[in-house]
Simulated assay, not measured.
Amino acid sequence: MDRWLWHARVVKARTSAAELVESGHVRVNGVRETSPGHAIKTGDVLTIALDRTVRVMKVVAFTERRGDANSARVLYEELNERKE
């Protein structure tokens, strides 16, 4: 999970992703997860409390390497955005 969060550019460093999960700020399908190595799969919904906001993201894809912001955006679907 920490690797996916880093690849998706939710955080700047993989260690930050691990700390975010360990501190209980990430839920997978509504269940709090505290293991950074927890496996996630396509279709999982992550709820992430980060920087006084809550992001709800649906896992859409995986990648082997961390890319730029454009390639990171294809890894998830933002579920808490307002669509007008």
Rank of each mutant, 00 (worst) to 15 (best):
Arg65His: 12
Arg32Ile: 14
Val10Arg: 07
Val54Met: 13
Gly37His: 02
Val26Asp: 00
Tyr76Asn: 15
Glu77Thr: 12
Gly30Tyr: 01
Ala69Thr: 08
Val56Pro: 07
Leu46Phe: 01
Asn70Phe: 12
Met57Cys: 10
Val45Phe: 01
Arg66Tyr: 06
Glu33Ile: 15
Val26Met: 02
Val45Met: 03
Val10Gly: 07
Lys12Met: 04
Met1His: 05
Leu75Ala: 10
Glu22Asp: 04
Glu78Asp: 15
Asn70Leu: 14
Gly37Met: 00
Trp6His: 07
Val54Lys: 12
Leu75Thr: 08
Arg32Asn: 07
Thr63Asp: 11
Leu46Trp: 01
Leu50Tyr: 14
Asn70Tyr: 12
Ala61Val: 02
Leu46Ala: 04
Glu64Pro: 00
Glu33Asn: 07
Tyr76Ala: 15
Arg55Met: 12
Arg27Leu: 15
Ser16Met: 12
Ser35Gly: 05
Val45Gln: 11
Val10Thr: 06
Lys41Ser: 05
Leu75Lys: 08
Met1Cys: 04
Thr47Arg: 13
Arg73Val: 08
Val74Lys: 15
Ala61Glu: 10
Arg65Ile: 00
Thr34Pro: 00
Asp68Gly: 13
Val11Gln: 01
Ala8Tyr: 01
Glu78Ile: 08
Trp6Pro: 01
Leu5His: 05
Arg55Cys: 09
Val28Ser: 10
Gly67Tyr: 02
Ala49Cys: 08
Asp51Ser: 11
Ala39Thr: 01
Tyr76Gln: 15
Arg3Pro: 01
Ala61Ser: 14
Arg3Tyr: 08
Lys58Ala: 03
Arg14Phe: 13
Glu19Lys: 14
His38Thr: 08
Val59Gln: 03
Thr42Gly: 07
Glu33Val: 15
Leu20Gly: 09
Val31Trp: 02
Ser35Arg: 12
Glu77His: 09
Val74Thr: 15
Asp68Phe: 06
Val56Cys: 14
Ala17His: 03
Arg52Ser: 15
Lys12Trp: 01
His38Gln: 12
